[in-house]
């Protein structure tokens, strides 16, 4: 049974169709890269998987559970099981790195326990978080205020926060688009290594073919809200990839779609 599954999913924002009859399945523990130009529907696809966008047609399921007609608390429970790394990381800038990582688990707690966990964690949690920070290469930065860290280091804090959730799957929306090639490669290497170690399902959206091929066994190409190709990354050719990004007459539409998505 696949972990993430989309069956003929269509998402509309007003008149725009951000996704058009997308069908895709990602197995448990699989690693997959979404590629495609801005506005092709990558972000929307990721959001559908955490119930943050409402499909107007088709079915979405996570770990066999249909996402249609969930109640609000069920949506929250779903989100605690999926780590989501946004392009803008959404870390709290004036908290320490350790506190930001601790925030990963608050979805499972009530308010009082969440506050305690973030601001006054017990010794066990604190040590576990520091070990996790060590795994992402920030072992000596636990006490540093997050806005004092470099962009690449903040990215690692965001990854650590997603892992502290103890998720089954991790979704990352263009996690390396604001980093230089060397740092981008390091972050992806980290992300893939950690998900292999923890057996996580990993879906990442990207723009670089070389990086996608290097770290992900499978590529899905999106354009105009449709799945253009879906196959092992070794089989995706340079020309095919470039065709995905070529400007077309419908570009105006895409631009507008990008604003929505």
């Amino acid at each position: 049974m696949p972990f993430f599954a989309l069956d003929e999913v269509t998402v509309r924002f007003g008149n725009l169709e951000a996704l058009r009859s997308c069908t895709m399945a990602v197995g448990r523990g699989e690693r997959l890269a979404l590629v495609g130009p801005s506005g092709s529907g990558k972000s929307t696809l990721l959001r559908v998987l955490t119930a943050a966008a409402m499909p107007s047609g088709g079915r979405v399921s996570v770990d066999g559970r249909d996402l249609g007609g969930l109640r609000e608390d069920e949506v929250r429970a779903l989100r605690t099981r999926i780590g989501f790394i946004h392009q803008q990381l959404g870390l709290v800038p004036n908290l320490r790195a350790r506190q930001n990582v601790a925030a990963g688990r608050i979805g499972r707690f009530g308010l009082v326990r969440a506050v305690r966990h973030v601001f006054w964690p017990d010794r066990g949690s604190r040590e576990a978080i520091d070990r996790l920070l060590g795994r992402v290469g920030l072992g000596d930065r636990a006490e540093t205020r997050t806005d004092r860290l470099s962009g690449g280091q903040q990215q690692r804090v965001a990854i650590a926060r997603a892992l502290w959730q103890r998720p089954d799957g991790v979704l990352a929306d263009e996690p390396v688009s604001s980093l230089d090639p060397a740092r981008a490669r390091a972050v992806l290497a980290l992300l893939t290594r950690l998900s292999v170690e923890d057996g996580l399902t990993l879906v990442v959206s990207l723009h670089q073919l070389d990086l996608a091929r290097e770290f992900f066994p499978r590529l899905v190409g999106l354009r105009g809200g449709r799945v253009v190709f879906d196959r092992p990354s070794g089989e995706v050719g340079e020309a095919e990839f470039r065709a995905l990004y070529e400007l077309s007459e419908g570009e105006m539409d895409d631009d507008r779609r990008a604003e929505v998505a």
């Binding site: 929250r76 946004h86 959404g90 870390l91 709290v92 608050i106 979805g107």
Partner: peptide, 16 residues
Amino acid sequence: APVPRGLRALGATRAQ
């Protein structure tokens, strides 16, 4: 927006 949105994506409640 990214800060509260990021926390919501973790499954945090409004109060959290």
